Computed example of a mutant assay.
Amino acid sequence: MKIEWAPLRVPLARRLQTLVTAVLTLTFFTLPLLACLIVAVIMFYGGIFIRTLMLVYFVYIYVDHKRNYSILEGNGWMINRANRVYRNYRDYFPVELVKTVDLPPNRNYILASFPHGILGTGTCVNMGLDISKWLELFPQIRPKVATLDQHFRTPLLRDIVRWWGMVSVSKESLVRLLTKSNDPKHPDNRDGFSSNAVAILVGGAQEAMDSHPGKYILTLRNRKGFVKMAIRTGSSIVPTFSFGEVDIFNQVANPPDSLLRRFQSVVKKLTGISPLIPMGRGIFNYSFGFLPQRRRIVQVVGSPIDVVKSDQPDAAYVDKVHGQVMEDLDRMFDQYKAKYISNAKNSKLIIQ
């Protein structure tokens, strides 16, 4: 394979963006395993005092998750959600955020986010790591990103993802967030915000397995849990689409009937995580490595779909709202693809 090397003369700003992206990408891929390994080493080699502290920490995790599902109220410490480090990560691609309509802060929202891609980079940057652009476009609305509940039961990992504004995707956690009062005078809203917006990467690990450059394949047709949650909590559903998300990584070919796909499906069923083999670029070359490619990602935030609140969602009504979400995503893709992705004429949206 011919290696395409990066030029020697690269502006310092781009070098810094590459360095930050390398560190963060390696962190994202290894953090769950690394957190467990660090805890194991501490427990094995630590003295009685260190082990006692760790046991106290384990009890705290259990109690805190039992009490409030490990939710970090408000936006947390802004230094963890908007700083120069994360701005370099945003600018590496770059990641952009586009508002199509205003979202009034008098209700809570579920952002049905597509596609997942390998890491869900667009959504996680705009609503997790660097929320400055979000707060500029959608004032008084707290952005959150929902991820696997097991992350919040893992020592060290839980604290890091909480700092990034992530919350558990469990039903209990979502209900707690999405039923918060929208009254500006409520004690929960003393931070000046009166609304919560929780992004759910609906396609999850299944959709990640279908992520290949230029292919927009959504796992949605049989995913209706987020619609039921919206109806139960009275939250509006906002479809969002991240153009370019699938282009920053390729992955080893895994057709539906391949041995690799069957292995990935088994692991996903057992753990909730699909073991992907991503292929990107290197720090000093553009041909192979673990870094994502520099490809523009544009997250377009669509119009809210209001729902009628009901503790027992009617199946026909769920199907109706779910169908509207699919229609809106299809319309958004056709409306914006020519503006935000190359080869738009041959790009099609597949919803399965």
Rank of each mutant, 00 (worst) to 15 (best):
V59K: 11
V202Y: 00
F193S: 13
F241G: 02
I79V: 13
T18E: 10
D183F: 08
L157V: 05
G47Y: 09
F263I: 10
T30L: 15
V169T: 09
T30D: 11
F28I: 15
A35L: 07
Y69I: 04
R296P: 05
V202G: 00
S132L: 12
R107K: 15
P155C: 03
V39C: 09
A344Y: 12
G244W: 02
I341D: 00
G272C: 05
G117S: 04
R223Y: 04
T100S: 00
F93W: 00
I3S: 03
F28R: 03
A22V: 10
L97M: 03
K2C: 03
S235P: 01
I277V: 15
W163S: 08
V145P: 03
I118V: 15
L135A: 13
D257Q: 13
Y69L: 04
P292E: 05
I48N: 12
D130K: 05
L329I: 08
R107A: 08
N83S: 08
F263W: 14
V39P: 02
M332S: 06
Q17E: 15
V238P: 05
N88C: 14
I141M: 01
N285Y: 09
R223Q: 14
S236C: 11
A13T: 11
L103R: 06
S303K: 15
F49I: 15
S310H: 06
N80Y: 13
S181R: 07
Q206T: 15
V23R: 07
T271E: 11
V98I: 15
D328Q: 15
P11E: 14
I118T: 14
V238C: 04
